[in-house]
């Protein structure tokens, strides 16, 4: 539930069509989503995402309910996404596939190290630590399990 990575700064209101375009949805090959993530936003972004923490503006993940958007970020190696607010379906989807989300209005400097700990509820960058709103206990459990599939598998 903790980690650190280099910040990749993004704007506000990034919709899920921009995260992964509709033309790539009809497949079960998850690696394809990782390859084409953010293609319509900036085709040079995908290779920079491995081990990164995305720091975006408000309302990240708005639009379509496609879970492929969260999966694409995960596949591309994004460790967590920080934003002041997230669109609610994306919020659920990300937690459900095991991608940590952090609600915080962080000042983003590209490449700066961002560290986070969701269990204790903080995010840190540039030497400043901020407390963040805790996830609900259920969401934390799902995230700890590695996603909703693992969560239910574990309950056999």
């Amino acid at each position: 539930m903790h980690g650190k990575g280099k910040a990749v700064c993004l704007a506000a209101d990034i919709d899920t069509d921009l995260v992964i375009a509709g033309r790539y949805l009809r497949t079960k090959d998850r690696s394809l989503w990782g390859q084409h993530v953010f293609e319509d936003l900036d085709p040079k972004l995908a290779p920079r995402l491995k081990g990164s923490v995305i720091v975006a503006g408000k309302n990240f993940g708005c639009g379509s309910s496609r879970e492929q958007a969260a999966i694409a970020l995960h596949e591309a190696g994004v460790l967590a996404v920080v934003a002041p607010t997230f669109a609610r379906i994306f919020f659920r989807n990300a937690i459900n596939i095991g991608l940590p989300l952090i609600e915080s209005n962080l000042n983003c400097i590209d490449g700066q190290i961002v560290s986070f700990d969701l269990s204790s509820g903080w995010v840190e960058s540039g030497g400043k630590r901020r407390m963040v709103r805790a996830l609900s206990p259920r969401m934390l459990d799902i995230l700890k399990a590695g996603g909703l599939i693992e969560y239910w598998k574990g309950k056999r």
Binding site: S65, R66, E67, R92, N93, N96, I97, L148, I149, W152
Partner: peptide
């Protein structure tokens, strides 16, 4: 309201 695929799978179950 809308949800994603994993949430829906859990609802199926």
């Amino acid at each position: 309201t809308g949800v994603g695929a994993s949430d829906m799978a859990a609802i199926w179950m």
